[in-house]
Design a protein around this nucleic acid. Structure first.
Lengths: 239, 239
DNA sequence: CGCGGGGTTGAACATTCTCAAGAACTGTGG
DNA sequence: CCACAGTTCTTGAGAATGTTCAACCCCGCG
C-alpha cells in the first residue's frame, strides 16, 4: 500500500483499488464479473480496518453497506429476546455480511465482532443497487446465494427444533468433514468449543460431555488444538 | 373461466389469464408491476388444483417452478435427519413457495401439502429469469423479500437455540397479536395445536401444559375454537 | 350412535442446564 | 524462556426442563 493512500483518509479508512479487487474477486457473487465491471464497482468501495475485539456493527444500528472481508475473521451473533447470545456464523476472508440492510433499508439485527485484526471492504447500498440495475445478471447470482442461505437457515432451524444436542454435534462434525477437502480423517474445528456450543444452541459443559461420550463410543478421537479424528462416520450419524 | 381453456389441458390444469392476474396481484413481489408487465409474466403461468391432503411437492424432487396460492391453504414441512417432522410455515392465499429451486437448479428440501382444496398458479424458472433480466428492478424487490425472510429465519433459529419452550410460545402469541389488525385482545391460532407444537419444536402435550400454565398465571385465557384472549401481554413477554 | 382425531392430564423417564471447582491452555511481560 | 493471569475446557452433582407413553375426554361427523 502506498503511503499517500494512508494520509488521504482519516483513521484507518483507505481506498486502494488493487486491494479491493483482490478481495472481491474471492466472493462468489462477484467472481464471475468481467474486468470492467469489477473496476466499476470497486471504485465505489472503501476499506476499513478493525482491531481484534472491535465491534463492526451492532443490532439496532442503521446500516447501508455490504461488508466483504479482505482478510481476518468476524463473528456474527444475535441476542435473543431474553438476552442470550447465539453465534450465527464465523466469516473468513472472502465472505460477506450486511446483506439484509442492503435491500431492506432497515437496521441490523445481529452483531459483528472482529475476532482478529480484520480489514473489510465496504460497498454502499446505493452504489450496489445502481450496479445491479445496470447488470441484471448479477442479481440472479445474488438471488441464488440468498436462496441457498435461506434453505440452510431453515434446515438449521429444523435441526434445533427436532434433534437433540448429541445429534446436532454429530451432524456438525460430519459437515466439517465434508467441507475439508483432503481425504484425511482429521478435521479442525473452525472455532473454539465455547463458540461452537453457542452456535449449536447448547452450553460448553454439555458440548464437552457429549464429545467425551462420542469418544467413549469410539466414533471420534479428540486430539490437541481443536483437531478431531473421525473414526466411524456412519456410527456417528446414527447417534 | 371459458370452457375452451379447460379442454386444452389435461387433468386440472388451466391457463386463465384473469385468474392469474387476480392471484398474482396479491403477491408482494409482483404487486407493483405495471399492467403490461403483469400480462407478460402471466401468459407463462399455469394453474393447478389440489385436493385436501394431496402433496404438491416432496423433498428430493426436481423442481423448477414458483408456486403462488390462488386460493386455499398449504402446509410446508421438513423432515430432519432423524426423521422427525417440523412445520416450517402455513401458506394462505396470495403467498408463494418454491423459491429455492427457482434460482438454484436443485431439488426440494421440504414437503408441501394442501390442507384444504387448493388452487395454485405456477411460473417456470426459465420464464421468470428471462423476465427478471428484462426488468431488473423486480429483482431488487425479490432480493428485499428474500433478505427479510432470511432475517426472520435466523431470528427463529436463535429462538430455538436459546429460548425455552414456554418463552417460544409466549413470543408466538405476541406475534399473533401484532399481526391481528383489530384492537381486540383475542387472537385466533392460525393452525391446530398439533401443528403449532410442530412449528414451535415441541410436542402437543408440552404445548397443552404450557398454555395451561400461562392461563394459571393470568396472562391468557383460552376460549373455544383456537381462540385465545391475551390478558397481560407484558407479563407474557417476561416469562 | 359410534368412530376417530385432536386435545388434555398424569407419572416415569431422559435430556440438558446450572453452579462450582479444578485442569489445561494461551498469550504477555519480565 | 519462564511465570503469571486470564481464558477456555472439563468434570461432578443436583435441579430444571421437556419427552414419552398411556389413559381419557371431547367434539364433529359419518
Amino acid at each position: 500500500m502506498r503511503s499517500e493512500d494512508i494520509q488521504i483518509h482519516a483513521h484507518n479508512c483507505h481506498n486502494d483499488k488493487e486491494t479491493h479487487k483482490a478481495c472481491v474477486s474471492l466472493v462468489p457473487i462477484f467472481n464471475h464479473l468481467e474486468e470492467e465491471q469489477m473496476d466499476e464497482i470497486m471504485v465505489t468501495a472503501q476499506s476499513v480496518s478493525y482491531k481484534k475485539g472491535e465491534i463492526i456493527y451492532r443490532a439496532g444500528e442503521q446500516s447501508d453497506s455490504l461488508y466483504i472481508i479482505n482478510n481476518g475473521k468476524i463473528r456474527i451473533y444475535r441476542l435473543s429476546e431474553s438476552g442470550k447470545e447465539q453465534l450465527v456464523r464465523i466469516l473468513n476472508t472472502g465472505e460477506f455480511t450486511g446483506e439484509h440492510a442492503l435491500f431492506s433499508e432497515s437496521t441490523h439485527e445481529s452483531y459483528a465482532e472482529a475476532l482478529v485484526d480484520t480489514k473489510v471492504c465496504m460497498i454502499k447500498r446505493a452504489d450496489l443497487q445502481e450496479f445491479l440495475l445496470k447488470y441484471p445478471s448479477i442479481s440472479l447470482k445474488i438471488l441464488t446465494e440468498f436462496s441457498t442461505r435461506l434453505e440452510q437457515s431453515e434446515k438449521q432451524t429444523t435441526r434445533f427444533a427436532t434433534e437433540k444436542v448429541e445429534t446436532r454435534i454429530a451432524l456438525f462434525l460430519a459437515e466439517c468433514k465434508d467441507s475439508e477437502e483432503g481425504k484425511s480423517k482429521e478435521i479442525v474445528l473452525p472455532m473454539s468449543k465455547k463458540n461452537l456450543a453457542s452456535f449449536l444452541g447448547t452450553t460448553p459443559e454439555t458440548l464437552s460431555r457429549k464429545l467425551a461420550d462420542l469418544e467413549d463410543q469410539g466414533f471420534i478421537s479428540q486430539k490437541a488444538q481443536r483437531k478431531i479424528e473421525i473414526i466411524d462416520l456412519d456410527g456417528l450419524l446414527l447417534v
